[in-house]
Design a protein around this nucleic acid. Sequence first.
DNA 1: TGAGATT
Length: 360
Amino acid sequence: MESGKTNLIINYLPQTLQDEEFNTLFLSMGPIKSSKIVRDRSTGYSYGFGFVDYETPEDAQRAVDTLNGTELQNKTIKVAFARPSGENIKEANLYIKNIPKSMTRDELQALFTEYGKIIQVRILTDPYGNSRGVGFVLFDKKEEAEFALNSLDGIVPKGGTECLSVKHAEDNKGKARAPNQPAGGANVRGGYRHDRGGGMRGGMGQYGGRGGAYGGNMSGYWERPSMTSYGPAGPGGGYPRGGGGPMRSQSSRFRYNPMSSGYSQGQNESQNGGSGSGHILFVYNIGVDAQESTLWQLFSPFGTIEKVNVIRDHAKNQCKGYGFVTMSTYEEAANAIQNLNGYNFTGGKPLQVSFKSAKE
DNA sequence: TGAGATT
């Protein structure tokens, strides 16, 4: 697969993150060929990482630039280009024991670095943040890991009294299961997860271009024809109208009982923005530098985001200070209002978050 | 005995 410039690996995903949320977050950067949270086949348990393959290298790069470091629930996700897959990158992970308690992650990395390209180093800690003396070193290649194992297993590191133990990390995949997530539970909600690739990947990628619906849902992959509005690099900068109103009257009416600015749940959906069943929130005082990812970071802790929309002055190439966030359910939207309205996140004016009224 | 970086 020569998708090296478009294929991303996403690490440190929250355990409960759904495929739909995952897909929607990355779709905000542009059209994607496929996205997937890697899960145990039988239990649906998320391994905490996933892949997103964009149609263009530019969108992939932008996703790395803007979504890496995004906080989702209790995690800070990592977004990076995926290495091309192959046998040589498997079994490249080492499990280290008897690491001196005083040794830092950087020192451990320094010890291993001469044996190859290191992808990741981790020292496990107790709840107080103290080293437990065990950790992992992941190399780029199997041979490099082998070299390090043969060279370092049994040595006494500086500052230590015990022999370092270096072994191949065991693969515990398949045993894992989240405590509150029985097999077939919430992870498979919505039916977006399918095992077995279907062997049709050669047929992917013909999606009719930007601005159109992408057809062709593949087994195990996400596809969402209704989502055609992207961020700045999207088709024609396709923001719905929506400017014009709220700027003029940024007075008390937005601060005043945000739960009731002309909104009644379950009714007037068409008034409230048209498409679908989402609940649209108006978000003001997000600052001129706000990005789609800014809204994602703010709102994703409170539920499933269907869409974010930052309103920009395209002449000045900056945000007009407000945007919209569509959440899946009324409860999530209401919860976001309760938690975010009045939140001072820019250091400037506090956020004003309310249900989008008919006027806006 | 140990998290979650290769579908």
